[in-house]
Structure formats: C-alpha cells, structure tokens
Simulated scan of single mutants.
Amino acid sequence: MAPFGLVTASVSFFAKSFNVFTCKSILPRVVHASFRNPVKCLSTQVSGPPKRPLNGYMRYVVQQKPVLATQNPEIKLMEIIRKIAHEWRSMSPEKKQPFEDAFLREKELFKVNLQQYQAQLTPEQIEQQVTEKRQRMAKRKAIRKKREATTMGKPKRPRTSFNIFMSEHFEEAKGPNTQSKMKALLNEWRNLISHQKQVYVQLAEDDKIRYKNEMKSWEDHMSEIGRKDLIRDKTLSDQKKKAAVAEKAKKAEKLKKAAAKVQVTKAKAKSKLTKTKNSVTVKKIKKT
C-alpha cells in the first residue's frame, strides 16, 4: 500500500521548514555577522508592511544551520534543528546576549518603520488589513482546531474510489518518482472499464459508512467529555435542532397533560354539582 498521506505530509513539512530557515543568497558564514546586520531575506518589501525581526533564538538558528549542514551533510534537517535547539538551551546568558541585543535593536527599528508605514495608509487600506488579519486569525484557529481533533483521535476521512485504487497499485506503478507514478495511475484509472471501477466504488461507499459510524461515536464522546468545540458545525446544528424538537414535544406533552387535568377537574366538579342537585331534589320530594 502506498504511503500517500505520509509522503504528502513529509514533502509539505520539509518545504515549509526550508522556506523558513533558508536564505541562500545572504546567509552569513560566520556567527558574528548576525550581530551587525538583520536577515535581509526576511526584510521589508517595498509595497508591504515591515517584517517583524527574528528573536535571539531564531537568529542563532539561521546562523548555525548552514554551518552544521556543511559539517554534517548526512544529517536530516529536523535533526539539525534539534541539535541547534539543544545548544541554545545549554548556552549561558552571556553567550545568548549578543543575539538578544541584535533582536532588541531590530525591534526598535521595526517600530519606527511600522509607524511610518501605517501613517501613509488610507482608511480603505487600514480596513482591508483589519479584514485580512481577521481572516488569517480564523484560518490559524481552524488549523489548531483540526490538529487538536486529530490528537483526540478524530476518525480519518473516507477515501475516494481512486484513492483506494492508487494505494493498491502504487508499488508496482511505473515511474521514477511519486509524481510520475501518480500520473501513470491516473491514466490507468481513466482507462478502466465500468465494472472494474465498480469494485473500488463499492469499497469507497463502505468506507463512507465506516467514517459516518466512527464520527458519530467520536462526536458523542467529545460531547460527553465537554469538548463540543471540536465537533463539526453541522453536527452541532443537528443537535440543536433535535434538542429544539424534543423541547417542543416536551412542552406539548405538558400542555396536553395540563388540559387533561383541567378536564378531569371539570368533570369531577360537574359530577359533584349533579350529586348536590339530585340530593336537593330528593329532599324536596320527601318534604312534600
């Protein structure tokens, strides 16, 4: 079976890591260069706002990563970062101070540049930036929520028929790399006749049922432990509708019982009145 999800996640993660920690054109070759100059690959763009300066630790990472990578070409990127982080934690405050001082200097310069940038903005641009910031915060919140839900054991989404086909035939697919193999499998999938595809379509339908059942159990458990914030909005909406219907039915049942009670009370009063009238009539007859 093909490690499709693992390959995709790994490529994405290392690509992001490479973008953050790499700047080929300006990475200094000696440590002391970071004390004098900011990291220019992260500097302010002409048309955009000034970028926040790197803190002391990140400056140390940017300076030490190419050195360790050159000295240890066989070590993976994450192992290099772990080693740098361990070194930073072991450093004395005196050794960390130059990096922290560089950060503080750049922080003051950032404040000045930010004030100058904001002073030239129009009200429309300011409003647009506020909207964009709100959207970024919402996106980050959604990502954090998704990660936490995964940590809490949220079931995996159902696979499509093509995903199932690809995972079964990935190993024997022709091609020197993942991309070429996926392209070859896509062409092969398109050339399958209907009854051959039907097998994978049925497997996908079964996986949908699996996902639906597992999600119901998982969301019920999240409700029980007080983590409704991780439940899907659609499920919460359905739960509210069901609760509203149940509450309405409960009120209707109460009204029905109250009406029945009133009827019983009226019947008893009527019966008592009838008995009283009959008793009076009997007494009159006896007197006569």
Rank of each mutant, 00 (worst) to 15 (best):
D220N: 11
G153Y: 14
Q115D: 04
E79N: 09
T274C: 04
K216Q: 08
L109P: 06
K107L: 15
K40M: 06
R227K: 09
A259E: 04
E253H: 03
F21Q: 01
Q135P: 01
I75R: 12
K251H: 08
A258K: 03
T22G: 00
A173T: 02
I75V: 07
K154C: 09
I225L: 09
K275C: 13
K111H: 08
P158L: 10
M91F: 01
V61L: 02
V264I: 09
R136H: 05
I164S: 01
K24M: 03
S92D: 03
T265Y: 01
P158D: 02
I164G: 01
K248W: 09
R227D: 03
E79M: 11
K16H: 01
A102S: 11
R29D: 14
W88H: 12
E94R: 13
K181Q: 10
I84Y: 05
I81F: 08
F170G: 00
E253C: 00
K146Y: 08
I209W: 09
K156L: 15
E124S: 09
R157I: 14
N187W: 04
K16Y: 10
K284D: 10
P176N: 06
T44Q: 05
S161C: 14
T150D: 11
M152S: 00
A15N: 15
K141I: 02
D207S: 07
L273W: 06
M137V: 15
T276K: 04
P93W: 04
M78L: 15
D206S: 00
V199R: 10
L186A: 09
K251V: 11
N19Y: 13
Q129P: 03
K212W: 05
K270D: 07
A2E: 08
R210A: 05
A259Y: 05
D229P: 02
Y211E: 01
K197N: 03
S237V: 11
S271P: 01
T274R: 14
P123L: 14
Q128E: 09
P66I: 00
K40V: 01
T131K: 13
N163E: 15
K24R: 08
P93K: 12
M222A: 15
L6M: 10
S12R: 12
V30C: 11
L42V: 13
K208S: 10
I225N: 06
E214N: 07
E127V: 02
F35A: 08
V201I: 10
K208G: 14
H32G: 11
Q116K: 15
E100K: 14
E74I: 07
F21K: 00
N187P: 06
G226I: 01
K208H: 11
R134A: 07
K250Q: 10
S194F: 10
A259I: 08
S92F: 00
